[in-house]
């Protein structure tokens, strides 16, 4: 039985796909057979972030419609063993995802995979609802910024009422907060919500803090998940997040501004 994890946020552009790619890759690096599914029908991007855009032949909707089977459609990552990508369709509209169809594909993947990462589209429409419906756990990606925090709160409400676990009265979806694009310097100056602020507002358990980093854009430019950039702050922060996802304690890094000299500390910056 696979663990089904949805990466969601409500708001667009906060780092869902970057996080899905990084976390999926990280789990595979840890030896778990992992598939990342792009639920953003019509606007696929996971293939680009993973650098496999030229290897897409069939897609998620093809599998649902029976035009292709999973073996033909899954793209095997060439860098990390046990990592697969199920790309979204570029042409269909988002209503192509039916609940029965998605369930069938997830059930089949569940037989052989350890982890299924569902990369949700932005918004709260069909694609986003389908991505979270079957989830056992949810990683809510949030930027320390008002509209992102509010949208995350909406998504938390939807997880609690519209997921399969909620509808069937089962144990609720396990929620995790992943704070991205965090800038400790701006937090210190009082210009940005702090980790503690966001945790207090949303009341969700924190699983990771990813600093705002040059490495993220660089990684997407070359189609390599940022977690493979082991030297980078963002890559290390994602690796820490993987440890916590696997139940290991890990101290938080990159949440404080680098130490200033004694003069600056005395008289303020």
């Amino acid at each position: 039985m696979a663990r089904i994890i949805v990466v969601t946020s409500g708001k667009g552009g906060v780092g869902k796909t970057t996080s899905s790619a990084a976390l999926g890759t990280g789990l595979a690096l840890k030896g778990f057979k992992t598939v990342i599914i792009d639920f953003d029908i019509g606007l696929r991007n996971l293939d680009l972030i993973m650098g496999v855009e030229r290897r897409v032949v069939y897609d998620f909707v093809n599998v649902i419609n029976g035009d292709s089977n999973l073996n033909q459609t899954l793209i095997k990552d060439k860098r990390v063993d046990g990592l697969y990508i199920l790309p979204a369709s570029q042409t269909r509209d988002k209503d192509a995802l039916t609940r029965e169809g998605v369930e069938k594909v997830l059930n089949e993947l569940s037989e052989t995979f350890d982890y299924i990462i569902c990369d949700s589209p932005a918004g709260i429409e069909q694609g986003a609802l389908m991505a979270l419906y079957f989830a056992d756990e949810a990683i809510v990606v949030t930027n320390p910024e008002v509209s992102s925090v509010r949208d995350s709160d909406r998504i938390l409400g939807i997880l609690a009422s519209k997921s399969r676990r909620a509808e069937e009265g089962k144990e609720p979806v396990k929620e995790h907060l992943l704070l991205t694009r965090y800038n400790p310097g701006r937090v210190e100056r009082g210009d940005m919500l702090s980790v503690e602020d966001v945790c207090e507002i949303l009341a969700v358990k924190l699983i990771g803090v990813i600093p705002e980093s040059q490495a993220v854009l660089r990684a997407s430019n070359v189609g390599e998940p940022v977690i493979l950039d082991e030297q980078s702050d963002a890559g290390q922060a994602y690796m820490d997040t993987i440890e916590r996802l696997l139940g290991n304690e890990k101290e938080y890094r990159f949440i404080e501004e680098e130490k200033k000299g004694i003069f600056k500390r005395l008289f303020g910056g």
């Binding site: 008002v146 009082g190 702090s194 207090e200 507002i201």
Partner: peptide, 19 residues
């Protein structure tokens, strides 16, 4: 009051209403 504090206060009201 910092900008971040204002953001926090506004969000706390919104979130309470939604819940």
């Amino acid at each position: 009051t910092t900008a971040a504090n204002q953001a926090k206060e506004r969000l706390q009201i919104i979130v309470a209403q939604r819940r």
